[in-house]
Simulated assay, not measured.
Amino acid sequence: MKPARIVAVVHSDTDVPGSLPELFAEQGVELEVRSITRPLIAPEMLDGLVIMGSPESAYDSRLPWLDAELEWLKEVQCRGVPSWGICFGSQLLARALGGSVHRNAHVEIGWTPLTTLQNDWQHVGPWLNFHFDAFTLPPDATLLAKTNLALQVFRQGKSIGMQFHPEIDPAMFDTWTRYWRSTQEGRRFLETAGDLPERMRAEIQDRQPANRENCRHLVKDFLNQI
């Protein structure tokens, strides 16, 4: 039976979960969005979890909340809570399950189709990738998809990690550009990005109907495994 509520953890008070709240609501499930700045919910109180993205690195021990979130996520996995990690969230989930995260040899930015590796997972996209880091496959996980630049999707039990951003919409992308303008690291990125942010937003807008439909199927799959 589908749960009435699933918790989505965002990694900043200004982060938003894109199209996910409406897509979960279509399936009769409330997506409760909680910032990492609030106390983490006891694992035994969770029926399902979504771990959202972040501009930070999932191996940066300087982050004041990272170690606590990782230990909490390990306990969540030990309890078998169905979990969906997105981008940074997939990397943290990989770490919680025994994998690792590293700076990738190549930046992966743009809409990319996936090479799928299992017959029961055929969500080829294209999906929006925007990442500098990558995960290694946890020892007991199954690799479901990849691109030429990085592993993309893995599954272990009722948990799944996806390196790309299926939930992206223009409003969510606007939070990214505000972050870039307001941080030193973001401004460094913008200095070399040229018109990339403007082109990315326009393409997100153009692709929104198809991407939303693709994401709808991912939400249904996640709920079906619960």
Score class of each variant (00 low, 15 high):
residue 87 C to D: 08
residue 115 T to S: 14
residue 168 I to Y: 04
residue 109 I to G: 02
residue 58 A to Y: 03
residue 139 P to M: 10
residue 164 F to C: 13
residue 131 H to P: 04
residue 135 F to V: 04
residue 35 S to W: 10
residue 126 P to Q: 06
residue 103 R to H: 13
residue 52 M to Y: 02
residue 72 W to F: 02
residue 29 V to S: 10
residue 58 A to F: 03
residue 37 T to G: 08
residue 77 Q to V: 05
residue 128 L to A: 07
residue 88 F to Y: 15
residue 156 Q to E: 15
residue 33 V to G: 00
residue 47 D to I: 00
residue 148 N to P: 03
residue 32 E to G: 01
residue 154 F to W: 15
residue 133 D to E: 14
residue 103 R to L: 15
residue 100 S to C: 08
residue 101 V to D: 03
residue 147 T to I: 03
residue 35 S to N: 02
residue 76 V to Y: 02
residue 42 A to L: 07
residue 94 A to V: 05
residue 50 V to I: 15
residue 77 Q to F: 00
residue 85 G to A: 05
residue 96 A to D: 01
residue 90 S to W: 01
residue 91 Q to N: 05
residue 52 M to I: 02
residue 52 M to E: 07
residue 151 L to C: 02
residue 142 T to L: 11
residue 161 G to P: 10
residue 167 E to A: 10
residue 45 M to F: 01
residue 39 P to L: 07
residue 143 L to S: 08
residue 125 G to V: 06
residue 51 I to D: 01
residue 119 N to V: 11
residue 47 D to E: 13
residue 139 P to A: 12
residue 97 L to Y: 04
residue 70 L to Y: 12
residue 46 L to C: 04
residue 120 D to N: 14
residue 70 L to A: 11
residue 162 M to I: 14
residue 69 E to Q: 15
residue 138 P to W: 05
residue 146 K to S: 13
residue 77 Q to E: 12
residue 77 Q to M: 15
residue 59 Y to D: 14
residue 136 T to E: 13
residue 154 F to H: 06
residue 70 L to E: 15
residue 70 L to V: 13
residue 87 C to I: 07
residue 152 Q to T: 13
residue 147 T to G: 07
residue 76 V to K: 04
residue 113 P to A: 14
residue 120 D to P: 00
residue 52 M to W: 06
residue 49 L to E: 06
residue 100 S to A: 15
residue 96 A to M: 03
residue 60 D to F: 09
residue 144 L to Y: 15
residue 40 L to I: 04
residue 104 N to E: 10
residue 54 S to E: 01
residue 143 L to Y: 10
residue 120 D to I: 05
residue 129 N to D: 08
residue 87 C to S: 10
residue 67 D to V: 11
residue 47 D to T: 06
residue 67 D to F: 04
